[in-house]
Design a protein around this nucleic acid. Sequence first.
DNA 1: ATAAATTATGGCAATATTATGGCAATTAAT
DNA 2: ATTAATTGCCATAATATTGCCATAATTTAT
Lengths: 229, 229
Amino acid sequence: MAKQVVLVEDEPILCENYASAMRANGYEVITADNKQSALELFQRRLPDMAVLDIGLQDDMEAGFDLCRELRALSSSLPIIFLTARDSDFDTISGLRLGADDYLSKDISMPHLLARMSALFRRIQALDNKTDAGDIVKAGDLLIDTIRFQVKWRQQLVDLSLTEFWMLHCLVKRVGHVKNREQLMQDANIFVDDSTITSHIKRIRKKFKQLDNAFDHIETIYGVGYRWKS
Amino acid sequence: MAKQVVLVEDEPILCENYASAMRANGYEVITADNKQSALELFQRRLPDMAVLDIGLQDDMEAGFDLCRELRALSSSLPIIFLTARDSDFDTISGLRLGADDYLSKDISMPHLLARMSALFRRIQALDNKTDAGDIVKAGDLLIDTIRFQVKWRQQLVDLSLTEFWMLHCLVKRVGHVKNREQLMQDANIFVDDSTITSHIKRIRKKFKQLDNAFDHIETIYGVGYRWKS
DNA sequence: ATAAATTATGGCAATATTATGGCAATTAAT
DNA sequence: ATTAATTGCCATAATATTGCCATAATTTAT
């Protein structure tokens, strides 16, 4: 889904320039040319990012006000100031208000777009960040123990809980052979040996459905199983 | 605890200037003057932020390399480029590499510090999306913890208080699986597991009344529930 | 090569977990 | 006091998962 950006700028031509460049980059852009209508937009629906001009018509501080209001609505919404003024003082007070970036209007369009996408990237990275040490990676495999998700080459593998922990057991030490007892322990079950065989069967099956060439779970005859890379 | 910043800059006097300004602002600063020692620092322990000069000694691209290496280590670590060069081209390629900011060395020290704290503020804001009096946004969903209002695609969802907090618990970390215990804690109740099931049922029902295709609350068999985007 | 041991596979029954509708108890509002 | 809303919980239905077995296929050892 396209990211929605609200652009607040009172100079019509400039505004349309920015807006169309953003649209060409895949953003959905809504514009406002004064404080009042901008506020209404925000109240109606929070965008994914706001790009604000500071001086609007006669009110030289309108952008700062908008920033404050927006921040009250959401502490995490990304805000970029776009301004003709360029003094350090302005920049600093802009950032102090909780803006994320402060750019002079004479930068190039590609530069502005790069800043925007850098900001989105940051949000993305933080959203996907999980608390330390809960992601196990092994080559094309990703195990996330908070989301209880397994990804094989970007694709989600739909495992049951016991399957999940058994896989986790194999992968947390790539190359090490795990016997059936260890696998049971990690999955918190106590069952017949044959049942472990069944679980491995099902895990392999689910991976093969995504990638027919899959063969990273190796059988060690007489001992157990191992994840090979 | 003080935020740890790694500063990579090969010009000794400049480096000391920056470092002491940062220290005066409460940061713990570790410096490096070449690629090798910087990498060692990062491998030993990831800082809370990295401020990188691009050209180091004879290697004009050292900073870019470091950025790449750092990003491989952590996708969410904040990185600021600090550079004498100032062309748009550099800025853009810097940001493309996953940097969060790109600053010319001739900006003032207060400006640099403001940029740093703006970046920290952003991280902070995203990390505790949970504080009261804020609006949490996840795709089409809006949760307003002041008014205790939930909106799904602009439409108000009429949830009871417990339902509200349970939803909030699920949404404040999109994708994370919450078990019944966690949901109880966040809603401030202590009840039978089956009661949680009932609440989820009711929440789903209310969303479905507005949007029959709604299915963002996913059941993870044997674990709990998750908000999926 | 053959026998013995081990593992793979498909299927099915048993079990565990969750969904649903409803009801009684509680709380809040009029 | 009466009504409405909320909440906890239960019985029952619907699903998902799991354990295990018979049988086939492999592997290992002799």
